[in-house]
């Protein structure tokens, strides 16, 4: 019988924990957001989280969707500048101090967070994190028993 090497299993688990986030370049113009959401809706793509980061002339819309590849295709066809970035999603109880605990782990591991955004659904809260070293983040969070969600789990909540 063939046995998978332990590091290969770890590698698979690691890949499983990465979430594909869409990033879209949008000019600060009326109706841009309406158009993007309209296109995704018409293509039957569900959004579970998003955030906008902006300056005076443009913004970056970051989205977690049910089918990132299909969304990427739809947006590309409509000539949007869009890219896919790996992020991780942490799950924690919606309690005071829960996020602080996770942040402690990340900071102590010397990891820098490029950006993050969070949402809550009653008793549990989720945070999407884009760290500078994603592999290390997955490793230290797993070691410290922080729960990470895969894309499929995120959409079955």
């Amino acid at each position: 019988m063939l046995r998978a090497k332990p590091e290969a299993i770890r590698n698979l688990q690691y890949l499983y924990m990465l979430i594909k986030q869409l990033s879209i370049f949008l000019e600060n113009k009326k109706g841009r957001f309406t158009e993007v959401t309209g296109l995704l809706g018409a293509a039957g793509i569900n959004m579970t989280a998003f955030t906008v980061s902006e300056n005076s002339d443009f913004g970056i819309l970051r989205l977690i969707v049910s089918d990132p590849e299909a969304a990427w295709n739809v947006l590309k066809e409509n000539r949007y500048a869009v890219s896919i970035t790996d992020v991780v999603c942490i799950q924690m109880p919606d309690n005071p101090g829960a996020l602080a605990k996770v942040m402690d782990i990340i900071t102590n591991a010397g990891i820098f967070i490029e950006y993050m955004y969070a949402f809550s659904s009653g008793k549990i809260a989720m945070g999407i994190i884009r760290p500078d070293n994603i592999e290390k983040t997955v490793e230290v969070l797993s070691q410290n028993k922080v729960e990470l969600l895969a894309t499929s789990e995120l959409f079955s909540l």
Partner: peptide, 15 residues
């Protein structure tokens, strides 16, 4: 116009 291939997800890189 920034070429598609060079579009960055990070605001700081675009700035």
């Amino acid at each position: 116009e920034v070429k598609d291939a060079f579009f960055s997800d990070e605001m700081s890189k675009l700035m």
